[in-house]
């Protein structure tokens, strides 16, 4: 895929979508170890029940990790200036996350051409789990 170019991109252009396999308990266990986030809410069903949320939930940062893959699939990571996410709904075992993004602004910042993209992570029912945005520098 050719590198995206500032001149040819238009507001409204979509970035390539990323769909990942459904969340499993094993994936959450691996993410616990890999991320260093050992909050039992993500692997210990007894803890999750006591916390009043019925079952373990995915780390928000796992969802943001998926969203980051959409970005780095599209541009080199060194082009990333900012990346932010607001978590909106719990992600549970069995949920399948699809990340979508589109260009929402072309701007000039810090002496370089930049674009702002809006990113959404939603499950197989269309429930939005997280919304975010990123500013990316482009030649």
């Amino acid at each position: 895929m050719p590198a995206p170019s500032f001149d040819t991109l238009q507001v409204g252009d979509a970035l390539p979508t990323l769909t990942v396999p459904p969340i499993t308990r094993q994936k959450l266990a691996i993410y616990c170890g890999a991320s260093g986030d050992h909050n039992p809410l993500h692997v210990d069903i007894d803890f999750a029940r006591d916390a009043g949320i019925n079952d373990v939930i995915a780390h928000g940062m796992l969802i943001m990790g998926y969203m980051s893959r959409l970005l780095t699939n599209w541009v080199p990571q060194s082009a990333l200036r900012t990346f932010s996410t607001r978590f909106q709904a719990l992600t549970r075992v069995g949920d399948q996350i699809t990340c979508t993004a589109q260009v929402v602004e072309k701007l000039r910042g810090d002496g370089e051409n930049q674009i702002r993209v809006a990113i959404t992570a939603a499950d197989q029912r269309g429930e939005v789990k997280a919304v975010g945005e990123a500013v990316i520098a482009l030649a």
Binding site: D50, M64, L80, R81, R86, F87
Partner: peptide
């Protein structure tokens, strides 16, 4: 801890 959820996360990158 059992009452905590992650609400928002923002990064600003300066170098790799």
């Amino acid at each position: 801890l059992p009452k905590v959820l992650h609400g928002e996360q923002q990064f600003t990158y300066h170098r790799m």
